[in-house]
Design a protein around this nucleic acid. Structure first.
Lengths: 331, 331
DNA sequence: GCGGCCACTTGGAACGTTCCAGGTTCGATG
DNA sequence: CATCGAACCTGGAACGTTCCAAGTGGCCGC
């Protein structure tokens, strides 16, 4: 049951522990005979280096912590995938911690990561105040993902939500829409930029922005859509703050007996996998999700392995994905 | 930049390192005066216990490793959530590692977990041979999730796929269906049991099982459905091996201009979130996913904290979720 | 006023590595 | 044939904790 240590291997191979250590790390620097003896002994004993002890003396764990609010959100899952992939590629591991409805649980999760001495931290969809995060960043490098900041201490990688909203509006306008409502998600992550991008794009086209308050959820989108349908001046197109909200809106429109895109065109945001299902086929704004994760890892490693000291902020442009929920308005 | 250690705190508080350690672990055993002095010093220095050092001396990390094949699969995401929740509740942390298309990457991930000396391992959707897994289990307790085994060394928690299939068949038969085809997913995890459960249930109703080979994917379901529609004796109901396959079948049926459930009733398996979307509304077999995760954690902790030595295998019964893709067949 | 007990505190060993300064061996070199 | 350097190897210190045996006082009871 007890796992063999480097000393057991050294004894069996008839060499010093230091040599065993060297074989494990830089085998080419050891003579053939010793290397083979050590390797054989290790094999026979089932020796496995103890990363805990190694971390203690090296004072680095080669683990990157990732705290994210919700694994169910496929957006985060994709990003997490990119993170994991990039980390492994560079000789690091990713440790995920998820599921924060309340900020308190998030704080605990972060604290735990810090106690475990992860080498860097990626925060995904966090609502925590930037100042608070900055305070932690003297202990380790932190990258904010999917969130914008001008922080001098924190790195960030985000998508240009404003540009995404513009692409949605441009698409609808090019189809001939003029009455375009935006369901906005208040102050949720990214929502203000999507909203202001929408407003700016509308004005640029000489159109009047029309806003309805909703949320990033199916039910939030459904409720907002109900409000829109109860209004007087019916729009010909709706731009939802994300795909979930668009889905909710879609249900409400269906339930009202209206046709998409015949009566109302609908645009989402995020390009979740389900947006591509034939029965949904939602026109939406796509984001290179795995790339976001990879970029975040690279930002961290630039600090860790290359010694960068100043903050970097990366912005990735989103793309328009046209499916069948948008068409020219009825004449 | 350098983090303070227990010695820094001890010096500042004017006590020994042992006392600081004690305050961190069992504050009630220390005099009020000392406790406060230590706590204040720790606070002022921003001291945070080093879990790496602690793990080394205690020879346990209080980390549970979770290797899963795919985070995108919402099933795994739900299970992972249950795992994380149960772990935190019991003073452990979960470390996720995901994304294995190839067995090789899975092996590396597991090896990494072992080097990090996680206290227990949960394997989710792994295709690795049981004998191989058993060989690792003398190093640490392992729980297999979503997979059945009679192993004497490994714990497992799974759903009763056979019973799930039976519920699907019973439901369809009670609606009046007799020509019920099952798309089976070959030897993929759980698939053989779903298939044999289907076969047994059919025979019990005096009906002839009818099988078509498919897969656990959308495209696999779509292809199988095409094969079914090209056949001579059209069924009135189709039981897919999972929701993704059902979705694929649904697309094929839609494309053929047939109505669900008018022409064909359709039952999925898994009850993914998307099965509940109004536009999909798939009748399916639901599994208490988060519970699966929680159970796996409990199994591990029974060994870790309560000293259980013999294997336990838990089977959780699934439930039928009726939506709108099933109805009585046309007379 | 002394023994004993209790509450509290302490120093050193241990955990399993890596790192580093220095040691050994051996063949080549002048 | 002494010296040198290269190639290879070694022992001890360090990493930051926990654990444990043992120490220190103060107070109580007789």
């Amino acid at each position: 049951m007890k796992q063999p240590t480097i000393l057991d291997v050294a004894e069996r191979a008839g060499v010093s522990k230091s040599l065993v250590s060297l074989v494990m790390r830089e085998p080419e620097r050891v003579s053939d005979a010793s290397r083979e003896a050590v390797l054989r002994a290790a094999q026979e004993l089932g020796y496995r280096p103890n990363a805990v002890a190694r971390s203690l003396v090296q004072r680095r764990t080669r683990v990157l912590g990732v705290v994210l609010s919700d694994l169910h959100n496929p957006f985060f899952a994709d990003v997490a995938d990119g993170i994991e992939e990039a980390a492994v590629e560079r000789g690091y591991r990713a440790m995920l911690s998820s599921g924060f409805l309340e900020p308190k649980r998030e704080r605990v999760a972060i604290e735990t990561m810090l106690e475990l001495r992860v080498d860097g931290l990626i925060m995904l969809g966090s609502m925590m105040k930037v100042a608070k995060i900055e305070r932690m960043s003297n202990a380790l490098p932190i990258a904010l993902l999917g969130r914008h900041t001008r922080s001098k201490a924190l790195d960030s990688v985000g998508v240009d939500d404003s540009a995404g909203a513009r692409k949605a509006v441009d698409h609808l306008v090019s189809l001939g829409h003029e009455k375009i409502v935006h369901i906005h998600a208040g102050t949720a992550a990214g929502a203000p930029r999507r909203r202001s991008g929408y407003e700016k794009a509308m004005r640029r086209h000489g159109l009047e922005p029309r806003l309805v308050k909703g949320a990033y959820t199916e039910s939030g989108g459904a409720a907002a859509m109900r409000e829109i349908l109860e209004g007087l001046d019916q729009p010909t197109a709706v731009f939802a703050p994300n795909d979930f909200a668009a889905l909710g809106a879609m249900e409400t429109i269906d339930a009202a007996g209206l046709d998409i895109p015949g009566d109302i065109s609908l645009v989402g945001y995020d390009d979740l996998a389900l947006a591509g299902l034939p029965r949904i086929a939602l026109t939406t704004i796509g984001q290179p999700r795995a790339d976001l994760g990879r970029e975040a890892v690279h930002l961290l490693l630039e600090r860790l392995d290359e010694g960068r000291e100043t903050a970097r902020h990366i912005v990735i442009p989103p793309t328009l994905v046209v499916r069948t929920t948008t068409a020219a308005p009825r004449p």
